[in-house]
């Protein structure tokens, strides 16, 4: 690895200042599980790393009265998967986090790093988007908040400007009678996802009719994407097997996959279809079992 400057500020203000002063190639360092690999491979040569280790307030999960979550950007994945607050109404997020890498990775890796690294295959992104999450960004002086789905601009690219930090992720309360599920496929028991699909289904009172739905596809386009036509098709309809199959087929159409060493584009479409169908089936079986009761 090539040499770089290393700073360990103790506030968001100082961290942003340090990033700004070190110039365009400076990067925040959270768990390091993405950035150190990229640096060792020579894909990234930052002049400075600004460690978030000693910045207070970035490493916590808070659950508000209404059931919404505020997650500090530097919260580790291991703390998310085991957090009672997350497990309570957002178990699909905890599960998605638990499928990332190994224990060793999750003991370091952060949720903010997973998002800021902006890999199309980032495992927390689809489920967070399905929950309707937003992100808070600070430049040390001002904050801005935007929907997570608008955060990503391309593979490895986000709306973050030099000198900005992601500070928090806000996850709205899970709607009543809703079920969320994230599925990913693996080539081996520890793997980045070949395709990941998150589906949130909100059922109408006392029925199998879908009131609202979000379908989010990962590793199948330059960024995690919503599948609006799938969502549209679901709304107002009874969730039966035929509908699941049609929505699955539509997910395959909405995907914009590429060929790479992990899978062909064609196979990714197959997976998008299968995983979408299965996530819908999971919602249905949850409903059949008494809607979590």
């Amino acid at each position: 690895m090539e040499a770089f400057d290393y700073m360990r500020p103790t506030s968001v203000v100082d961290a942003c200042a340090a990033l700004r002063e070190a110039g365009g190639t400076a990067r925040a360092l959270a768990g390091g599980t993405d950035i150190l690999v990229q640096m060792r491979e020579g894909k990234l040569r930052p002049a400075a790393l600004v460690s978030l280790r000693d910045v207070p307030g970035l490493r916590s999960v808070r659950r508000a009265q209404d059931g919404g979550l505020t997650i500090g950007a530097a919260t580790r994945l291991i703390d998310i998967e085991t957090s009672p607050d997350v497990l309570r109404d957002h178990a699909a997020l905890a599960e998605a986090a638990s499928w990332i890498g190994s224990v060793q990775v999750r003991d370091r890796a952060t949720i903010g790093g997973n998002l800021c690294n902006a890999a199309p295959s980032a495992d927390t992104a689809p489920i967070l988007i399905a929950y309707g999450s937003s992100v808070t960004i600070s430049d040390g002086r001002d904050e801005r908040t935007l929907p997570l789905e608008d955060f990503f601009t391309g593979p490895g690219e986000t709306v973050l400007e030099p000198g900005e930090l992601l500070t928090a992720i806000s996850v709205p309360p899970a709607p009543a009678r809703s079920h969320a599920k994230y599925y990913k496929t693996f080539r081996s028991a520890m793997d980045c996802c070949t395709v990941g699909v998150a589906v949130l289904v909100v059922f109408a009172p006392d029925s199998r009719v879908v009131e609202d739905a979000r379908v989010v596809l990962g590793a199948i386009a330059p960024t995690p994407i919503r599948a609006p036509r799938c969502e549209e098709m679901l709304r107002g309809k009874e969730l039966d097997t035929a509908l699941m199959a049609s929505v699955g087929a539509l997910a395959a159409e909405e995907a914009r996959p590429i060929d790479d060493v992990r899978a062909s584009a064609e196979y990714r479409r197959v997976l998008a279809e299968v995983l979408t169908k299965r996530a819908l089936a999971a919602a249905d079986s949850w409903l059949q079992k008494g809607a979590g009761a």
């Binding site: 360092l29 599980t33 150190l36 280790r53 190994s102 060793q104 003991d107 370091r108």
Partner: peptide
Amino acid sequence: GECGACTVLLDGEPVNSCMVLAHE
């Protein structure tokens, strides 16, 4: 960080020491 041969316990928790900057 793929093979785990470099695993050590940092404050009791297993981490891949190849992916932790010493100063962290």
